[in-house]
Simulated assay, not measured.
Amino acid sequence: MAPSPDEQDDFLLACRYGDLDDVKLFIEQHGGSAAESVRDDNGNTVLHMIAANGHEDVLSYLLPLLPNAPALLASQNNAQSTPLHWAAVNAHLPIVKTLVEFPGGPGVDLIDIKNAAGRSPLAEAELAGWDEGAQWFVQMMKLDDTVKEGEADAEDAPLEPGQEVEIEIQDADGKLAKMTLGGSPENT
């Protein structure tokens, strides 16, 4: 039997407040598939609620019981934020790690999803001033590594005298800053 709207609301609240007993009761009565379909008026899933509030025990219990957990991990609410965005905004490192490292899930690709404001979970961590989380995201990200084994990497080679290299750095707001490295000593 499908859960009533009241049962769904109660389940969302149990996830939000970390009431593991009520979460278990809902799963026993309705199963993981029913849990996946529960959303609030803003499109937040149960994973959004758990991630925002840092309930590790609830996440550890519930995540393996969700038949479509990989899809739910990447689920976006009305503001296009994922549960990982919410965990990043609220500085919940154990939750962040669990979401990204979930076996069979999207993995580090979750870090690249942007919300309606154009921010990734990494950008949200930076904006919140959460250095530990931002550093973890950067360590986990897939960086473009196109150099084949045995080939020299031009980026690792020292600059020749007079050689200039222009680099661009993107900040958390998506703004680009350009910088020139090298050149002749009188230009530095």
Rank of each mutant, 00 (worst) to 15 (best):
A134F: 06
L66P: 12
I27C: 00
S37W: 13
G18N: 09
L181E: 03
N77V: 07
A88C: 05
V165S: 08
G31N: 06
E101I: 01
A2H: 10
W86S: 09
P94F: 01
E124I: 01
D153A: 00
H30Y: 02
D173I: 12
D156Q: 15
D112H: 12
M1H: 15
H30G: 02
V58K: 07
L84I: 05
D144P: 13
F11P: 04
S4D: 07
L93V: 07
E132G: 09
H30T: 00
I111L: 08
D173N: 09
E155W: 04
D109A: 09
G104N: 15
W136A: 00
A52Y: 12
A34D: 01
E164L: 03
H55I: 05
T146M: 07
H48C: 01
M49R: 12
F11K: 08
N42I: 07
Q139G: 03
S33C: 12
A177E: 14
V108R: 13
P121I: 04
L25M: 09
A116T: 15
L93I: 11
L110T: 05
E168S: 12
D21M: 05
M1D: 10
N115T: 10
A128I: 09
N90E: 07
V108M: 10
S120P: 14
P67Y: 04
L66C: 04
L66K: 07
L143I: 14
R16H: 14
L84F: 02
K24Q: 08
A125E: 03
K142W: 00
P94D: 01
D10R: 14
G133W: 12
A2L: 10
N115R: 13
Q139T: 09
V96C: 02
S33H: 13
D40W: 01
P83F: 02
V108P: 09
D112V: 13
P3R: 11
T45W: 02
L65C: 02
R39P: 01
D131C: 06
F137Q: 05
P64L: 06
A52Q: 15
G54A: 01
L181W: 06
D6K: 15
K114P: 10
L25K: 15
I27L: 04
P94S: 01
D57L: 06
M49I: 10
W130F: 14
L73M: 02
E124V: 03
N44Q: 08
Q29H: 07
N77D: 03
W136D: 00
E186Q: 11
F102H: 14
G105D: 07
